[in-house]
Write a protein that binds this DNA or RNA. Structure first.
Lengths: 151, 151
DNA sequence: TTTGTATAAATGTATATACACGTATTTATT
DNA sequence: AATAAATACGTGTATATACATTTATACAAA
């Protein structure tokens, strides 16, 4: 579906203005397509993101701050996302012995299993379905980098 | 700042995979840059979006469903966004005389004034600052359209 | 008319976002 | 060592997201 149909809007002030709306709409679209798959595993997008970050360092532990710095949405409230993951026994919390201010988090075996299964589905149902080629993705990445360059 | 720095991640499964994360990150970045400006006017991104949609049809009224279909994030809870706009006297709610199930919304003079002022700032502080050219924006729009084309 | 079904909006609930603030702990400065 | 400043995390609040349910109304068929 074209952007114009999606948000029932035909006139944009400029192509740049349209691109801004387009990025916002596409992000929403990507999130909702992904969320549909993750729901099968009882995970939200943010919980999945935290699990992926933890798995990346596993078996090392990570402190909350360290996880937060790797989140896509920087204003994510990581302690609360961890609350929910802990309730489901997907991660474990401990106070750091080195710095008692820090809480260190570890992904559990259950967390790894759930992440592996959900990533398999996510890659199959999302990544592999895109018509976009690798070359086009390179261009897209360059342009997105550029929009964040501000005068 | 490069994406790699922003989310402290260097290896991506592919350029397409990176592009997906990049779109999500750029959308978050755009939203937070915009939100900072809107805060001066006591508006959230979503409230601003609803006001813009209403202004587009003004002086015609719009029903809730019609507004919802024009929202960028389709799962927005429009009645509740309108609740907040109504409290601030930026919009008015009425029951439709044609179909009593419908609630019709009108933007008030105060709403128009606030929207005009905030749009001026948004265009100045955001749109005009982008380094991206119109030609690059066209390419970006084509590529974003393409990523939503699924096999 | 009555019944059933569809539709529009509002409302409820869990989670997340955005941001301010509090508390404990560490590090730096005097 | 004592005090100040910075840091890490948790918590509180308003708003939003995502989705299910409820209520009122419209409309078509029995």
């Amino acid at each position: 579906m074209k952007l114009e149909e999606a948000i029932k809007s035909t006139k944009f002030k400029s192509e740049v203005h349209k691109a801004v709306l387009h990025i916002l709409y596409t992000a929403w679209w990507l999130k909702s397509v992904g969320a549909k798959e993750l729901k099968e595993f009882g995970l939200t997008h943010e919980q999945y993101n935290v699990l992926r970050i933890l798995k990346g360092k596993h078996p090392e532990q990570m402190c909350v701050r360290d996880i937060a710095s790797r989140m896509i949405e920087k204003s994510s409230n990581v302690p609360r996302i961890i609350d929910r993951l802990e309730l489901k026994k997907l991660v474990k919390r401990n106070t750091s012995t080195v710095d008692k201010r820090e809480t260190v988090i570890t992904i559990t075996q259950g967390g790894i299993a759930l992440l592996t299964a959900s990533t398999l589905v996510m890659d199959e149902k999302m990544m592999k379905q895109f018509v976009l080629s690798e070359e086009e993705a390179v261009t897209l990445n360059i342009l997105l980098e550029k929009i964040r360059e501000i005068e």
